[in-house]
Amino acid sequence: MFEDLAFWVSYITNGKHLTWYASFQFTIYAALLGGALAVIFGLTGATLKNSRFAVLRLIGTIYSSIVRGVPDVLFFLFFPLAFEQAVEWFVATQVCTPESIAAQTSPWPPCREANWFLGTTEYLLLASVSLGLVYGAFATNVIHGAMRAVPAGQLEAARAYGMSASQVLWRVHIRQMWVYALPGLSNVWMLIVKATSLLSLLQIADIVLWADRLGAPNFLPTVGLVHDDWRWRYYLVLFLFYILVTWLSERAFEAIMRRAGRGILSEVPA
């Protein structure tokens, strides 16, 4: 019994399992960075939609309506590849010589010097930007609606007291907008969290990929068959992880809402 326990402890702390545990950080980084970018793109998109200039309004509207309809899986595949090749194309125009182009055997990139090798960090950044772009389109809609919910009289008062346009925007408009945007943004955040399960599409060895590998029937020369197909057990761990993240997110949003809603949400008259 004790020997069994010792075996399983050493099994779940072996190198591959430790790598799996470490890969949870990729998921967390991608969610946090993707979420922050989605808010930034959302603020930008909402500002464009509110612009005085028709061209900017059009850009904001096109972004929020078109990108919302693009499946995240597709965008995940499209954006990093398109970005990588665009960079390689640009670098090629700078560094390739006729000789290096002649020496290149594969169809892409134009010459070997222009090749851009993407490691996990680069893919993680591109994945986060993809998440930010896709879900920023949802955030644009949420924030745009929330901006309109801020009482106009308070913005007018800010102007009447001599605040500049950017002071009105940041000190009153955006500050109060959060209260109306947070319920919608918490939905967007949960979508982003769920979409992090797509990281393996970008050859990132993420939690899903490792659960797949570790759950497959395992045979060690020293002990024989350790376990047969255990994938559902490993997937169950991922379920629990995502449930934990959901629970933590809800607590965090409640706390932010309490802070942002101070004075605005249901104050008891004194």
Partner: peptide
């Protein structure tokens, strides 16, 4: 106009106090 506005104290019918500030 910002300088001039900062010397004109306007009081509105519906108060228009900033709700998120004390």
């Amino acid at each position: 106009i910002r300088r001039i506005r900062s010397e004109l104290g306007m009081v509105f019918q519906s108060f228009n106090l900033w709700a998120h500030m004390t």
